[in-house]
Each structure stands twice: as structure tokens, then as C-alpha cells.
Amino acid sequence: MSILIQIIIYGLSLGMLYFLLSSGFSLIFGLMGVLNFAHGSMFMWGCYLGYILSLSTGSFLFGIIGAAVCIGVMGLVMEKWLIQPLRGNQLRQILLTFGLIYVLEELAKVIFGTRAYMQFPPEWLSGSAHIFSETVPQYRLFMIFAGVIVFLLMTLLLKKTKLGMIIRAGTDKPRMVQAIGINVARIFSITFALGCALAGLGGAIATPFLGAYPTIDMEQVFNAIAVVIIGGVGSFTGAFYASVILGFISYITSYFVPELSMASTLLAMLVVVMIRPNGLFGGKTSEN
């Protein structure tokens, strides 16, 4: 019983972390066809900024929101100067974001050094909670809460606002969106910034749990890739379910075979590619 609760809480909180990380990645890829390999780097910078902003202002909430805003602005700049000029050439975009991983990582090393920063959760989240007979850290519950809130807000945005409808329409038929009189370039900029902001938010929320260190970008970008492939491209709810599944896979593996915990998400992804190339939850076809 107690191990079951532990698996549920820990797996779910890990899954929500994956969701915060990958939802923006999936959104950008689905709409724009841009595979942003530097998404993990955005997450990493979110870790650092969240840590610094929390520390300097003394407010954890300000830290995570500030990190999201900063990374969002960073995404806006990146889209305008690096992604937009290469529109129409997917491979060059991919290669560019691949190179950007190293620029952003080395830049972080120059500024923050190579050491890992540990952050404690704020006081109001540092205790433990009791669920049935099991004691779990409050911060784990906060991660689940944050993931669910972001999922609900994003679902609301996608389903109920005109911007959301346009994003869904563009994910389906990008060319036709221009043909109904919508400035697609602007929608792309907004979406890219939004996607990056989500990565920044995820990073800042992850810091008290994972810490902030320079190789976290590569570790995490693969989780984002795994989520998108398992969840199906362009499917936001698919990304959510895939994140939860990966959270459980990852936690259960780390519980029983710690050596394989990092490889487990990649292995799960490869299995899905071989069995169902379009992902488990529909979405666009992988043939394109």
C-alpha cells in the first residue's frame, strides 16, 4: 500500500515535470514544424534564472514567474533572429537549434560556472504531507499541482480563445491559416515565446528538486523528444498523457534499477517508434 502511494505521488510529480518541459516543445513543433533541440537549454536557463530570482527577491513565486517571463522573451528574440530567417528550411532550423545547445550551455558555464546549485523549496512547501499512511514531501505535491494547473490553463487557452483556435488550426493546416487572413508569422512568434516560457517555468519549478547545473539541458531535451514521439506530434493532450506515462516508467525504473533510470524514457520511446510510429495518442504522421 505505502509503496503504491509512493509510486503514484513520485511518478506523477515526475510526469508533471516532463509535461512542463515538453508541452512547449510539442506546441512549437506541432504548429511550426520547428524541432527546437535547444528546448532543453531553455529549461536549463529557467533553472538558473529561477534560482537567482528567488534568491535575490526572496520570493519563490516571483522566481518561477520571472523565469518564465525571461525565457519567454529569450524565445521571442530567438524566433525573430534565428528561426524566422530560416523559415522554409526545416533542416537548417534543426541544425541551428542543435548548435544553439552548445552556445547556451557554454554561455551558462561562463556565467554560472560548472558547479551545481542547490535550492531549497520555500518554507511553505518544505514540509511533508500525509496521504493515507504515507509521508510525502509537500514539494512533490506542489509539482503535481503546478503541472495540472498549467495543463488546465493551456487547455482553456487552446479550446476557448481565438489564439488557441488559430494554433490548433495551424497545427492541422498551416498554409490555410494565412489564406483566411491571419498573420501566421505573428502567431508563430507568440507560440514560440509561449513554448519557451513554459520551458522556463518548468525549469524554475524543477530547481528545488533537481538543482541547476550545466548538463541538465541535454538530459531533459531527450525527455521532451520522448514525450512528443510517444504522445504524437501536435497533440497537446497526448503530450500530457505521455508525460504521465513516462513519469511512472522513469520512477519505477529508478526505484528498481537505478542505473537504467535515464535510459528508460529513451527505451520507451524507441519501443513506441517501432510499434506505433505515429505515437500512442494520434497526432500528425511521422512519415513527413
Binding site: V228, E259, V273, S286
Partner: peptide
């Protein structure tokens, strides 16, 4: 099984899988 962008993602993941194994399979 996959083309273009997917192929990029999957091959990169395979690369990472081998890297992770090299650090973990002591």
C-alpha cells in the same frame, strides 16, 4: 520507420542512449 524530422529525433535519442549506457554500465 521514420522520415526527416522524426529520423533526426530518433537517431539523436539512440546516440544519447549509448552515451547514457557508457556512463552507467560501469
Amino acid at each position: 520507420r521514420t522520415k526527416n524530422v522524426y529520423f533526426s529525433m530518433v537517431t539523436m535519442a539512440i546516440g544519447q542512449l549509448f552515451y547514457v549506457m557508457s556512463t552507467k554500465l560501469y
